[in-house]
C-alpha cells in the first residue's frame, strides 16, 4: 500500500485555523498582560460560547452544501419565548419549550429545502424573517424582562460554574465534542460529508440525502434556540432585536475554520478554532483601546478572504 505524503499546502489548509489561533493568542499574550489573566480568558470563552454553539451546528449544515441564515433570528426568538414564559416559573417550559420551537423551525426549514427543493439561502432567509417577525410581534418590539418569580434562578444559571469553569463554557465544549463525535464516529456524520461531497452519488450509495439535510437544519435550529435560552439567562430578559448578524459571524467562523462553503469538506474542530480566532481578535481590539470596534470587522473580513484564498490556491495545487 502506498503511503500518504503530506504537502505543506495540505497542512496549511487542514491546520491553518489552529496555527492562526496559536499565533494570535501568543501575540495577544505578549502584547497585553491583561489577556493572560484567567478571568479574561474565561470571559472571552463565556461571551463567545453562544455563537460557538451556533457555529458548530452551522458547520454541519454547510458540510451538506447548505446554509442557515435563520440562526440569529431564531436565537432572538428563543430568548423572547424564554422570557415570556418566565412567569410560569416552570424550568421545563422556560428552558425546553423555546428549544423545541427552535428545533421545529429548523426542521421546517429542512423540509422546505428538501421536499420543495428551495435553495437553502432563500428558505432560511424566509425563516429568518419569519422568526424575527414572530419575536417582534410577541413583544411589540420591546425587551421582555424576566418575571420576578423565576428571574433569580434563571440569571444564576449564567453565573454558575462547575469546578471553576462557567457552565456556558462547559455547554459549548459539550456541543463541540458532540459535533466532533457525530462527524467522525457515526454513520450519520459521514453521510453528511457524502451528501455535501456529491449528492447524487450519495443517493446511489443508498444514503437518503433528504433525511440527512432535514436533520442538520433541525440541529441548527436546536443549537440556535439553545443559545437563545442562554442569552435570556445572561441578560435577564428576552430581546427581539438582538443577535442581528450572528448568522454571518457563525458562517465566518466556519469558513475561517477551513470548511468549504460548497460542502463535503471541513471539520468541527476548525470551526471551534474559527470562533476563538474571532473572539481573540475582538478582545485584542478592546484591550488595545485606541482602535474602535469597527476595525474588528475589517480585520475579520481580511482574515476570511485570506483563508478562502488559501483554499482556492491549495485546490489548484492539489489538482
Amino acid at each position: 500500500m502506498k503511503r500518504k505524503t503530506m504537502n505543506p499546502m495540505d497542512i496549511l489548509q487542514k491546520q491553518g485555523a489552529l496555527l492562526a489561533l496559536a499565533v494570535l493568542t501568543a501575540a495577544a499574550m505578549i502584547r497585553f498582560p491583561v489577556f493572560r489573566q484567567t478571568g479574561n480568558i474565561l470571559n472571552i470563552l463565556r461571551q463567545n460560547s453562544m455563537i460557538g454553539i451556533i457555529a458548530v451546528a452551522m458547520t454541519l449544515v454547510i458540510l451538506t452544501g447548505g446554509i442557515d441564515l435563520s440562526v440569529g433570528a431564531v436565537t432572538a426568538l428563543s430568548s423572547v419565548l424564554a422570557a415570556s414564559l418566565s412567569g410560569t416559573n416552570s424550568p421545563i417550559l422556560i428552558l425546553l419549550l423555546p428549544i423545541a420551537a427552535g428545533t421545529l423551525l429548523g426542521f421546517c426549514n429542512g423540509l422546505v429545502v428538501t421536499k420543495m427543493s428551495v435553495a437553502p439561502f432563500i428558505s432560511s432567509l424566509g425563516m429568518m424573517m419569519i422568526a424575527r417577525g414572530i419575536a417582534l410581534v410577541i413583544t411589540s418590539g420591546n425587551s421582555v424582562p424576566m418575571a420576578e418569580v423565576s428571574k433569580g434562578w434563571i440569571t444564576a444559571m449564567a453565573e454558575a460554574s462547575l469546578l471553576g469553569v462557567p457552565v456556558f463554557i462547559l455547554l459549548f465544549a459539550l456541543v463541540a465534542a458532540a459535533g466532533v463525535y457525530l462527524t467522525r464516529k457515526t454513520r450519520f456524520g459521514r453521510d453528511i460529508y457524502a451528501v455535501g461531497g456529491n449528492e447524487d452519488a450519495a443517493r446511489m450509495m443508498g444514503i437518503q440525502p433528504g433525511r440527512v439535510k432535514i436533520a442538520v437544519y433541525a440541529l441548527s435550529g436546536f443549537a440556535a434556540s439553545l443559545s437563545g435560552v442562554l442569552l435570556a439567562s445572561r441578560l435577564g430578559s428576552g430581546q427581539p432585536v438582538t443577535c442581528e448578524g450572528w448568522e454571518m459571524d457563525a458562517i465566518a467562523a466556519v469558513a475561517i475554520g477551513g470548511t468549504k462553503l460548497s460542502g463535503g469538506r471541513g471539520a468541527v474542530p476548525g470551526t471551534v478554532f474559527g470562533v476563538l480566532i474571532l473572539a481573540v481578535i475582538k478582545n485584542m481590539i478592546n484591550l488595545q483601546g485606541s482602535l474602535n470596534s469597527w476595525w474588528q470587522s475589517i480585520i475579520t473580513g481580511t482574515l476570511l478572504l485570506a483563508v478562502i484564498l488559501t483554499q482556492v490556491f491549495g485546490e489548484r495545487k492539489g489538482a
Partner: peptide
C-alpha cells in the same frame, strides 16, 4: 450497481467510499 459515471464522493477517503453506509462499528462508533 456500478454506474457508468463514477458515483463516489470526492472528498472522502478511498476506504470510506468503499464502506460508506456500512462502515464497521465498534463500541465507540465507526
Amino acid at each position: 450497481t456500478i454506474y457508468q459515471e463514477i458515483n463516489l464522493i470526492p472528498y472522502l477517503s478511498v476506504a470510506e467510499n468503499i464502506f460508506l453506509g456500512r462502515q464497521p462499528l465498534n463500541r465507540t462508533g465507526i
